[in-house]
Protein backbone atom coordinates (compact mmCIF):
# COMPACT_ATOMS: atom_id res chain seq x y z
CA UNK A 1 0.00 0.00 0.00
CA UNK A 2 1.41 3.38 -0.95
CA UNK A 3 2.25 6.06 1.56
CA UNK A 4 -0.45 8.28 0.08
CA UNK A 5 -3.14 5.70 0.66
CA UNK A 6 -2.04 5.25 4.24
CA UNK A 7 -1.88 9.00 4.64
CA UNK A 8 -5.41 9.43 3.31
CA UNK A 9 -6.71 6.78 5.66
CA UNK A 10 -5.03 8.48 8.59
CA UNK A 11 -6.41 11.84 7.50
CA UNK A 12 -9.98 10.59 7.39
CA UNK A 13 -9.67 8.71 10.66
CA UNK A 14 -8.18 11.77 12.34
CA UNK A 15 -10.93 13.95 10.94
CA UNK A 16 -13.60 11.73 12.41
CA UNK A 17 -11.89 11.49 15.80
CA UNK A 18 -11.07 15.18 16.10
CA UNK A 19 -14.44 16.36 14.86
CA UNK A 20 -16.76 13.89 16.55
CA UNK A 21 -14.69 12.07 19.17
CA UNK A 22 -16.09 14.10 22.05
CA UNK A 23 -19.52 12.62 21.38
CA UNK A 24 -18.22 9.19 22.29
CA UNK A 25 -16.03 10.30 25.14
CA UNK A 26 -12.78 10.73 23.25
CA UNK A 27 -10.80 13.83 24.14
CA UNK A 28 -7.16 14.08 23.23
CA UNK A 29 -6.42 17.10 25.35
CA UNK A 30 -5.89 20.81 24.88
CA UNK A 31 -2.45 20.80 23.33
CA UNK A 32 -2.93 19.26 19.91
CA UNK A 33 -0.49 20.57 17.28
CA UNK A 34 -3.20 20.76 14.63
CA UNK A 35 -6.44 22.64 13.99
CA UNK A 36 -8.72 20.60 16.21
CA UNK A 37 -11.23 23.35 16.77
CA UNK A 38 -12.73 23.74 20.26
CA UNK A 39 -15.71 25.53 18.71
CA UNK A 40 -16.85 22.27 17.16
CA UNK A 41 -19.54 20.79 19.40
CA UNK A 42 -18.43 17.36 20.50
CA UNK A 43 -14.89 17.67 19.20
CA UNK A 44 -12.21 15.21 20.17
CA UNK A 45 -9.56 17.65 21.34
CA UNK A 46 -8.44 21.26 21.31
CA UNK A 47 -5.89 23.03 19.21
CA UNK A 48 -2.93 24.27 21.24
CA UNK A 49 -3.29 27.81 19.96
CA UNK A 50 -6.51 28.25 21.88
CA UNK A 51 -4.89 27.13 25.08
CA UNK A 52 -1.81 29.25 24.40
CA UNK A 53 -3.91 32.39 24.12
CA UNK A 54 -5.85 31.50 27.22
CA UNK A 55 -2.81 30.69 29.34
CA UNK A 56 -0.92 33.79 28.28
CA UNK A 57 -3.89 36.06 28.69
CA UNK A 58 -5.61 34.71 31.71
CA UNK A 59 -3.32 32.28 33.32
CA UNK A 60 -0.22 34.38 33.58
CA UNK A 61 -2.05 37.62 34.30
CA UNK A 62 -4.44 36.12 36.82
CA UNK A 63 -2.84 37.72 39.79
CA UNK A 64 -3.36 35.67 42.88
CA UNK A 65 -4.11 32.52 40.95
CA UNK A 66 -1.04 32.89 38.72
CA UNK A 67 0.98 30.29 40.55
CA UNK A 68 -1.32 27.42 39.75
CA UNK A 69 -2.10 28.68 36.25
CA UNK A 70 1.59 28.88 35.35
CA UNK A 71 1.97 25.21 36.23
CA UNK A 72 -1.06 24.30 34.15
CA UNK A 73 0.28 26.31 31.22
CA UNK A 74 3.69 24.68 31.51
CA UNK A 75 2.09 21.27 31.72
CA UNK A 76 0.18 21.74 28.50
CA UNK A 77 3.23 23.20 26.82
CA UNK A 78 5.16 20.06 27.69
CA UNK A 79 2.38 17.92 26.27
CA UNK A 80 2.56 20.00 23.08
CA UNK A 81 6.33 19.59 22.88
CA UNK A 82 6.11 15.84 23.37
CA UNK A 83 3.38 15.57 20.73
CA UNK A 84 5.51 17.50 18.26
CA UNK A 85 8.61 15.55 19.19
CA UNK A 86 6.86 12.28 18.43
CA UNK A 87 5.15 13.08 15.16
CA UNK A 88 6.60 16.37 13.94
CA UNK A 89 5.05 17.66 10.74
CA UNK A 90 2.88 14.55 10.41
CA UNK A 91 0.43 16.56 12.50
CA UNK A 92 0.16 18.94 9.57
CA UNK A 93 0.17 16.62 6.62
CA UNK A 94 -1.61 13.59 8.03
CA UNK A 95 -3.80 14.67 10.93
CA UNK A 96 -4.90 18.31 10.69
CA UNK A 97 -8.61 18.53 9.77
CA UNK A 98 -8.22 21.89 8.09
CA UNK A 99 -5.41 20.45 6.01
CA UNK A 100 -7.79 17.74 4.83
CA UNK A 101 -10.34 20.35 3.81
CA UNK A 102 -7.66 22.10 1.77
CA UNK A 103 -6.75 18.78 0.15
CA UNK A 104 -10.42 18.38 -0.81
CA UNK A 105 -10.32 21.77 -2.48
CA UNK A 106 -7.18 20.77 -4.37
CA UNK A 107 -8.88 17.58 -5.53
CA UNK A 108 -11.85 19.62 -6.70
CA UNK A 109 -9.59 21.97 -8.60
CA UNK A 110 -7.96 19.06 -10.41
CA UNK A 111 -11.32 17.54 -11.22
CA UNK A 112 -12.46 20.81 -12.73
CA UNK A 113 -9.26 21.05 -14.73
CA UNK A 114 -8.24 24.39 -13.25
CA UNK A 115 -4.58 25.24 -13.34
CA UNK A 116 -2.81 25.45 -10.00
CA UNK A 117 -1.13 28.76 -9.19
CA UNK A 118 2.46 28.66 -8.03
CA UNK A 119 3.69 31.54 -5.96
CA UNK A 120 6.95 33.31 -6.67
CA UNK A 121 9.67 33.31 -4.06
CA UNK A 122 8.82 36.86 -3.12
CA UNK A 123 5.14 36.04 -2.92
CA UNK A 124 5.77 33.04 -0.71
CA UNK A 125 7.99 35.06 1.59
CA UNK A 126 5.44 37.83 1.87
CA UNK A 127 2.65 35.43 2.67
CA UNK A 128 4.86 33.38 4.97
CA UNK A 129 5.62 36.40 7.10
CA UNK A 130 1.97 36.48 8.13
CA UNK A 131 2.53 33.53 10.45
CA UNK A 132 5.09 35.48 12.43
CA UNK A 133 2.60 38.31 12.76
CA UNK A 134 0.02 35.81 13.98
CA UNK A 135 2.39 34.47 16.60
CA UNK A 136 3.20 37.95 17.85
CA UNK A 137 -0.49 38.77 18.13
CA UNK A 138 -1.21 35.48 19.88
CA UNK A 139 1.35 36.34 22.52
CA UNK A 140 0.72 40.07 22.95
CA UNK A 141 -3.02 40.55 22.66
CA UNK A 142 -4.40 38.26 25.39
CA UNK A 143 -2.70 40.08 28.28
CA UNK A 144 -4.05 43.37 26.94
CA UNK A 145 -7.53 41.90 26.89
CA UNK A 146 -7.17 40.56 30.41
CA UNK A 147 -5.96 43.96 31.57
CA UNK A 148 -9.06 45.53 29.96
CA UNK A 149 -6.98 47.65 27.62
CA UNK A 150 -8.67 45.86 24.75
CA UNK A 151 -12.34 44.86 24.69
CA UNK A 152 -13.23 41.46 26.15
CA UNK A 153 -15.00 40.56 22.93
CA UNK A 154 -11.55 40.10 21.41
CA UNK A 155 -10.92 37.14 23.71
CA UNK A 156 -8.96 34.44 21.83
CA UNK A 157 -7.89 36.90 19.14
CA UNK A 158 -6.44 34.36 16.71
CA UNK A 159 -9.49 32.12 17.00
CA UNK A 160 -11.60 35.12 16.03
CA UNK A 161 -10.07 35.13 12.56
CA UNK A 162 -9.12 31.49 12.14
CA UNK A 163 -10.91 29.92 9.15
CA UNK A 164 -11.13 26.70 11.11
CA UNK A 165 -13.54 28.34 13.54
CA UNK A 166 -16.04 28.98 10.79
CA UNK A 167 -15.50 25.89 8.64
CA UNK A 168 -14.99 23.02 11.02
CA UNK A 169 -18.12 23.59 13.13
CA UNK A 170 -20.14 23.37 9.92
CA UNK A 171 -19.33 19.67 9.82
CA UNK A 172 -20.92 19.32 13.24
CA UNK A 173 -24.00 21.31 12.35
CA UNK A 174 -22.93 24.57 13.95
CA UNK A 175 -23.62 27.44 11.57
CA UNK A 176 -23.58 30.50 13.81
CA UNK A 177 -20.15 31.66 12.71
CA UNK A 178 -21.54 32.25 9.22
CA UNK A 179 -23.56 35.12 10.64
CA UNK A 180 -22.61 38.66 11.48
CA UNK A 181 -22.74 39.20 15.24
CA UNK A 182 -24.58 42.45 15.81
CA UNK A 183 -24.26 42.62 19.58
CA UNK A 184 -21.83 45.51 19.49
CA UNK A 185 -19.25 47.11 17.24
CA UNK A 186 -16.42 44.82 18.30
CA UNK A 187 -18.31 41.58 17.76
CA UNK A 188 -19.59 42.92 14.47
CA UNK A 189 -16.18 43.65 13.02
CA UNK A 190 -14.69 40.49 14.45
CA UNK A 191 -17.35 38.45 12.69
CA UNK A 192 -16.76 40.37 9.46
CA UNK A 193 -13.03 39.67 9.74
CA UNK A 194 -13.64 35.97 10.35
CA UNK A 195 -15.92 35.63 7.35
CA UNK A 196 -13.60 37.65 5.14
CA UNK A 197 -10.49 35.66 6.07
CA UNK A 198 -12.33 32.36 5.66
CA UNK A 199 -13.76 33.23 2.26
CA UNK A 200 -10.42 34.48 0.95
CA UNK A 201 -8.55 31.47 2.34
CA UNK A 202 -10.99 29.02 0.78
CA UNK A 203 -10.65 30.59 -2.64
CA UNK A 204 -6.88 30.81 -2.35
CA UNK A 205 -6.69 27.19 -1.16
CA UNK A 206 -8.68 26.18 -4.23
CA UNK A 207 -6.08 27.72 -6.53
CA UNK A 208 -3.00 26.86 -4.48
CA UNK A 209 -2.43 23.59 -2.64
CA UNK A 210 -2.48 24.01 1.13
CA UNK A 211 -2.51 27.80 0.89
CA UNK A 212 -3.23 28.36 4.58
CA UNK A 213 -0.28 26.21 5.60
CA UNK A 214 2.01 28.84 4.08
CA UNK A 215 1.19 31.12 6.99
CA UNK A 216 -0.10 28.74 9.60
CA UNK A 217 1.26 29.72 13.04
CA UNK A 218 1.07 26.12 14.26
CA UNK A 219 3.31 24.98 11.43
CA UNK A 220 5.78 27.65 12.51
CA UNK A 221 5.68 26.46 16.11
CA UNK A 222 6.19 22.86 15.03
CA UNK A 223 9.09 23.88 12.83
CA UNK A 224 10.74 25.72 15.73
CA UNK A 225 10.74 22.44 17.62
CA UNK A 226 12.25 20.64 14.64
CA UNK A 227 15.50 19.66 16.43
CA UNK A 228 13.43 17.58 18.85
CA UNK A 229 11.35 15.68 16.34
CA UNK A 230 11.83 11.96 16.06
CA UNK A 231 10.07 11.72 12.69
CA UNK A 232 12.10 13.25 9.88
CA UNK A 233 12.08 13.42 6.13
CA UNK A 234 15.65 12.73 5.12
CA UNK A 235 17.29 13.15 1.75
CA UNK A 236 20.35 11.22 0.66
CA UNK A 237 21.95 13.57 -1.89
CA UNK A 238 24.19 10.90 -3.35
CA UNK A 239 21.16 8.94 -4.58
CA UNK A 240 19.44 12.01 -6.05
CA UNK A 241 19.43 12.01 -9.88
CA UNK A 242 18.20 15.60 -10.14
CA UNK A 243 15.02 14.81 -12.04
CA UNK A 244 12.98 17.42 -10.14
CA UNK A 245 9.99 15.10 -9.71
CA UNK A 246 9.95 15.81 -5.98
CA UNK A 247 9.59 19.51 -6.46
CA UNK A 248 6.95 19.16 -9.14
CA UNK A 249 4.79 17.00 -6.90
CA UNK A 250 5.39 18.95 -3.70
CA UNK A 251 2.17 20.44 -2.32
CA UNK A 252 4.03 23.21 -0.61
CA UNK A 253 6.40 23.90 -3.52
CA UNK A 254 9.50 23.37 -1.43
CA UNK A 255 12.20 24.46 -3.82
CA UNK A 256 15.22 22.99 -2.11
CA UNK A 257 14.02 19.46 -2.61
CA UNK A 258 15.80 18.99 -5.91
CA UNK A 259 19.00 20.59 -4.68
CA UNK A 260 22.01 18.71 -3.51
CA UNK A 261 21.41 19.01 0.23
CA UNK A 262 20.20 16.64 2.90
CA UNK A 263 17.78 19.09 4.48
CA UNK A 264 14.40 18.25 2.97
CA UNK A 265 12.13 19.35 5.77
CA UNK A 266 12.00 23.10 5.37
CA UNK A 267 9.57 25.40 7.15
CA UNK A 268 6.85 24.81 4.55
CA UNK A 269 7.09 21.04 4.47
CA UNK A 270 4.05 19.24 5.83
CA UNK A 271 5.38 15.70 5.43
CA UNK A 272 2.80 14.80 2.81
CA UNK A 273 5.40 12.42 1.28
CA UNK A 274 4.39 13.18 -2.28
CA UNK A 275 8.04 13.87 -3.03
CA UNK A 276 8.98 10.48 -1.66
CA UNK A 277 6.45 8.68 -3.80
CA UNK A 278 7.39 10.68 -6.88
CA UNK A 279 11.10 10.07 -6.50
CA UNK A 280 12.41 7.45 -8.97
CA UNK A 281 15.66 6.85 -7.13
CA UNK A 282 15.70 4.22 -4.40
CA UNK A 283 16.68 5.58 -1.02
CA UNK A 284 16.99 9.21 -2.11
CA UNK A 285 14.14 10.29 0.16
CA UNK A 286 12.98 8.47 3.24
CA UNK A 287 10.83 9.06 6.30
CA UNK A 288 12.60 7.94 9.44
CA UNK A 289 11.56 7.64 13.05
CA UNK A 290 14.60 7.84 15.31
CA UNK A 291 16.67 6.55 12.43
CA UNK A 292 14.31 3.67 11.69
CA UNK A 293 13.07 3.85 8.11
CA UNK A 294 9.30 3.90 7.68
CA UNK A 295 8.94 4.89 4.04
CA UNK A 296 11.48 5.26 1.30
CA UNK A 297 11.52 6.24 -2.34
CA UNK A 298 11.87 3.36 -4.73
CA UNK A 299 12.57 3.04 -8.42
CA UNK A 300 10.22 0.07 -8.53
CA UNK A 301 7.15 1.84 -7.13
CA UNK A 302 4.39 2.42 -9.67
CA UNK A 303 2.50 5.06 -7.76
CA UNK A 304 0.16 7.22 -9.83
CA UNK A 305 1.78 10.24 -8.21
CA UNK A 306 4.77 9.75 -10.37
CA UNK A 307 2.89 9.99 -13.63
CA UNK A 308 1.78 13.54 -13.35
CA UNK A 309 1.65 16.15 -10.64
Amino acid sequence: MSAQRIRQAVQYLSFVILMYGGRVGIHLGSALPCFACPFVPGCGGFCYLMGLQGYIGFGLVAGAAAGKEVLVALGWFLVFVVSVALLGKVWCGWICPFGLIQDWLSWLRKKLGVRERYLSLGGKKAIGSIKHIFLILIVTLPPLITAKILPPDLYLPFCNICPGKLLLPLFAGETKYLALNLDNAVTLWVSVALIAVTASTLVAAFFKDRFFCLFCPLLALIHFLRPLTALRLVKEPTFCVGCGNCRRHCQMDVRVLDQNISQAQTMECVDCLRCLEACPSSGALSLKFLGFQLFSSSRWATSAWRRKP
Binding site: T175, K176, L178, A179, L180, N181, L182, D183, S191, V192, I195, A196, T198, A199
Partner: peptide, 11 residues
Amino acid sequence: QLDYKKGLTVM
Protein backbone atom coordinates in the same frame (compact mmCIF):
# COMPACT_ATOMS: atom_id res chain seq x y z
CA GLN B 1 -28.24 39.19 17.37
CA LEU B 2 -26.97 37.09 14.51
CA ASP B 3 -27.67 38.05 10.96
CA TYR B 4 -27.09 35.18 8.59
CA LYS B 5 -28.13 37.00 5.45
CA LYS B 6 -25.55 39.70 5.94
CA GLY B 7 -22.91 37.19 6.95
CA LEU B 8 -23.42 35.12 3.83
CA THR B 9 -23.46 38.25 1.69
CA VAL B 10 -20.12 39.34 3.12
CA MET B 11 -18.79 35.86 2.47
